[in-house]
């Protein structure tokens, strides 16, 4: 049977730290390096923050995370049922932000892409957004 966990929590910013810590604890089963663990937590934090800030825009909603392990590959899916993204390609551009007044740096997707091995973003306006990130963790040398 596959190793996986499902989390669901309200779209409140106070859950951002809970989400990354939980995914980090799950990934810790593979004995990641400190850098790998930090990369995973940062990427999860960006995805969850996007769901809170852009997906639900301060409104109440639920955020769902599924994490799975297959061999040394970690898959993290972060899903919201919020406002969605009209143009995913545009949103993925470095420094693109719809909220400069809130000092969003526009780096969220760039960080997810850089810190994980792969990133796919599936989104439809008024339906929501699903972000899938994968990372293969290094094998510890004896």
């Amino acid at each position: 049977m596959k190793d996986f966990i499902n989390l669901e929590f309200p779209s409140k910013s106070s859950y951002e730290s809970f989400a990354r810590a939980t995914v980090g604890a799950f990934a810790a089963r593979l004995d990641p390096t400190i850098e790998e663990l930090s990369d995973i937590k940062t990427a999860v934090s960006e995805a969850v923050t996007n769901a809170v800030v852009h997906g639900y825009r301060g409104k109440e909603g639920m955020i769902y995370i599924t994490c799975a392990l297959e061999g040394r590959e970690l898959t993290v899916e972060v899903t919201d049922q919020g406002s969605g993204i009209r143009d995913v390609e545009e949103a993925r551009q470095p420094l693109f932000t719809t909220k400069p007044e809130e000092e969003r740096s526009g780096m969220g997707f760039t960080i997810m892409e850089t810190f994980m091995d792969s990133l796919t973003v599936d989104s439809a306006p008024e339906k929501g957004t699903k972000v899938v990130m994968k990372k293969v963790l290094s094998t510890m040398e004896a």
Binding site: S45, E46, R104, S105
Partner: peptide, 13 residues
């Protein structure tokens, strides 16, 4: 111990 892009936004601002 931890900072994401929100921290970058704080410093840039």
């Amino acid at each position: 111990e931890f900072m994401d892009s929100s921290g970058i936004g704080v410093i840039m601002g």
